[in-house]
């Protein structure tokens, strides 16, 4: 999971760095070459990617919480196994992405500390609560759907380790998306109560999901450098439009109503949405979403309560090492 809104760069690659090297670097990017960890890169490129990849990793890890909320209550054994496997996949994505971020020179511990202290961001979508089982279907269908829209272009991102991580992540995400949609199909073909549960979940998630693509292009400040570096290949609005156009027929198939009475199709066939409440987006980003505090508290609790376990593992490894050394000396 990931949000385009977070990938703004510092936009400062001018610095005092070697102009010749910077030009060579840009020439490689322009030639669609992949940048690898040991290659020279501008400090701002490194910084932008470290932030984007680690925020992506944080999002995967925090994203385990809203869905994990339903593992113990999943309504059938098949659903339970699928959901547990899905949340496990997300953890795997997190690990994979932290490893990709580490190739840029910052340790996982440092990156995780940034998240736990509240300094580093994660996708705001996870600051909304999962209130019913239909939320699990809706997250798979829409949140994973939106994530895929964002991530497919990242498979061609100029930074090699990130691009390769995305290829694998995208495969799993599209599986999750189909799973989520299948939950929605089952609910919509079920009892009136189940259908209402599905509609209610769509009502609650629709607008936050549209916000996942980030602020509108006119106010999105730093897209230029990311585009020049081929980290970002489509604008926020372009991806949002693609997502909406793909989703409208799916909602129709389900017999659900998108909670935007003003939405209409234009002459190009694109669905135009009503204005998005960007104040809500800003509030959630500022820490005032319905679950910001709960999410951070849960991550901190797991981290703090796990400290003695990690310490024990370290202590044991040290003991073992010194025993082996002592043995070798004999």
């Amino acid at each position: 999971m990931y949000t385009q809104a977070l990938n703004s760069s510092d936009g400062d690659d001018r610095g005092v760095e070697d102009v010749v090297r910077a030009n060579q670097f840009q020439a490689r990017i322009d030639a669609d070459e992949r940048i690898e960890p040991n290659d020279w890169m501008p400090a701002a490129y490194r910084k932008t990617l470290t932030r984007q990849i680690s925020q992506h990793a944080h999002s995967e890890i925090v994203g385990m919480l809203p869905e994990g909320n339903w593992i113990t209550r999943a309504p059938s054994l098949r659903r339970k196994a699928a959901l547990l496997a899905k949340v496990q996949d997300e953890c795997g994505h997190g690990l994979y992405l932290y490893a990709a971020a580490e190739t840029l020179g910052t340790s996982r511990e440092e990156l995780v500390d940034g998240m736990l202290s509240g300094k580093a961001k994660y996708s705001s979508i996870f600051n909304y609560p999962t209130l019913t089982w239909a939320d699990i279907g809706t997250i798979g269908w829409l949140v994973d759907g939106a994530a895929i829209m964002n991530q497919i272009p990242l498979c061609r991102c100029s930074y090699g380790p990130y691009a390769r991580a995305m290829i694998r992540v995208c495969k799993e995400e599209s599986f999750h998306q189909r799973q989520g949609f299948e939950i929605m199909v089952t609910l919509c073909r079920g009892t009136a109560e189940q259908k209402a549960m599905a509609q209610n979940a769509l009502d609650r998630w629709w607008w936050p999901v549209l916000m996942m693509f980030g602020p509108p292009d006119q106010v999105s400040r730093h897209s230029d450098t990311s585009t020049k570096w081929k980290i970002k290949r489509f604008s926020n609005d372009e991806l949002r439009q693609k997502f909406i156009d793909a989703t409208v027929p799916q909602a129709e198939f389900l017999g659900l109503t998108i909670p935007d009475p003003g939405m209409k199709q234009n002459e190009n066939g694109n669905w135009e949405h009503s204005p998005i409440d960007w104040d809500e987006f800003k509030q959630v980003l500022a820490g005032n979403g319905p679950c910001n505090r709960d999410r951070l508290a849960a991550r901190r609790k797991a981290h703090e309560e796990g400290a003695w376990v990690r310490e024990a593992a370290m202590a044991y490894a040290e003991k073992r090492k010194s025993r082996q050394l002592a043995q070798a000396a004999e």
Partner: peptide, 24 residues
């Protein structure tokens, strides 16, 4: 499965879920 998302380390989150899935 109750541990999922709350384990002492990410690697252990994976392992606990893995064992839970086997048992399920």
């Amino acid at each position: 499965s109750e541990w999922c998302g709350h384990a002492p380390a990410m690697e252990e989150d994976m392992a606990l879920a893995n064992m839970g899935l086997d048992l399920l």
